[in-house]
Design a protein around this nucleic acid. Sequence first.
DNA 1: CTAGGGTTAG
Length: 601
Amino acid sequence: MNTVKVSSPYIRSIPSMVLKELQWAQPNPSYSPKSPSMLATNLIKSYFEKGSVKEARNLFDEMPERDVVAWTTMIAGYTSCNYDSLAWSMFHEMLNEGFMPNAFTVSSVLKACKGMKSYSCGALVHGLAIKYGLMGSIYVDNSLMDVYATSCCSMKEACLVFHDVNPKTDVSWTTLIAGYTHKGDGYGGLRAFQQMLAEGADQSAFSFSIAVKACALTGASSNGVQLHATILKHGLDSSLPVMNSMIDMYCWCQCPSEADHCFNEMPQKDLITWNTLIAGYKRSNSSKCLALFTSMESQGFTPNCFTFTSVIAACADLSLLTCGQQIHVDILRRGLDKNIALANCLVDMYAKCGSISDSRRIFDSLSYKDLVSWTSMMIAYGVHGYGKETVKLYNEMVRSGIQPDRVVFIAVLSACSHAGLVNEGLTYFNSMLTDYNIIPDQDIYRCVVDLLGRAGKTEAAYELIKNMPVDPNDSVWGALFGSCKAHKLPNLGKLAAQFILEARPDMAKTYLMLSNLYASEGDWGDFAKMRKLMKGLGGKKEPGCSWIVLKNDVYSFVVGDKVGPQMERVYEVLSMMVLHMDEADYVPDINCCLHDPEDGT
DNA sequence: CTAGGGTTAG
């Protein structure tokens, strides 16, 4: 017999080209299918590999006989295409039809549990793995650890599993380190990495890249520098993930020249290399972020959603509306506008560049809005002073079934405080505590103190501070100080200022306001003391600046600017504005202005 | 025949 029997009902959905391949392969004597479904199983796998999920499913549905391998292929295939819940229901169906899962099946379905971040699914499979005697398979153990690390808030469960893995492989260690690191616990990740070294486990590019990521999270470069040396010693600097991680670490640890050095020395780069450095510079030097973006295409790299989110955020930081609009066009041209994270970033950019109607247009165009979309739009309204709109949006969001988080409450509370919606704000604060069990942190307290303080309820704000479960930080006291200043409560103000200066002795603004307060009371001794302390800070305080974009150039101004292009014209316009202010009987409050008493500016 | 870990945004 030299042809494949094609009478099986499931074979008809196989494309004729593939059939030819199969017929050609058949005479090969080494080819001996172990089960009747093997051909179909291999095809299912290749369908998944090229993303043809529907075709894979059709073929599976038409198989007259399915074995555990076919089922496992379906489960693993769905997961590899990010259809984790479909993988999970496949597993259910398989059990219902009486099949016994093997180690392959269990590790595949555990990967689906990880994708769903489902602790309960993971625990259920854990139980089944014990029942079927599959614990002890290194694949099962490692993937179970991974599920627990991803789905539990602590690493306790993952560590319990890890403890019993024997022998531990570099995969086990990498999974453990990644568990801590992905939770944001850089020191936990580093501790696990050190333990791994102490136990003499094999080191790989995998474990190094995640360990370097852990260093990035700690924000201190000392560990990272040591790792860098070890990586060079092991010759692992040829691994892109390792070096990309290294660039990221140097950026997070404020070592831009080291990040540049790694970047320039890399003989090969990928898109992630570029994106990592671009994202790093977005946080420290937005102009350089834009410059890198401009040069990446000439080096043969095509920007993606990651690139654009950084670049759009850089435009937002620099308030470059025209630049942001041009890049937005680029995003539309490349069809990336459906990416939700990027769209959220655009909402933020337009708001920061003063074009709130564009923010709203993008927000409305989203077919699916996530928590960040709602938050971005609420913050956009908030900074523009549209408190009522923020509150409206909050209510809409809750109605649409999205659970607000800490950041949402910061947005709502600060919007309420700027719009004078005291009672609404307090209602949301209570709802946050009782309906959503969010433990208020310093930022939330600052918002509530500000809410009360702006409304003139300074004493109530002070009472709240006194009853805080943790020691209030300088920004909480700062909110109270602002209220004391606005509502002329010098004694409480002095108290608040003392607390601020205790935590932040570098706050020039606070010394100034405090000295003005002493002056108004005729307390010239304390006045002089404050001025002296302030002078001691030297030029540490960065002056606030304004700027204007003309054509493609940004012109920025600070107080007392004497040189610069067309400065005479600037001062001309300035004096005209002062005239207008006088005409409108506007008396500016210069009490909070920073000025140098020496030269009278 | 079927299974595992790492890097970039928000």
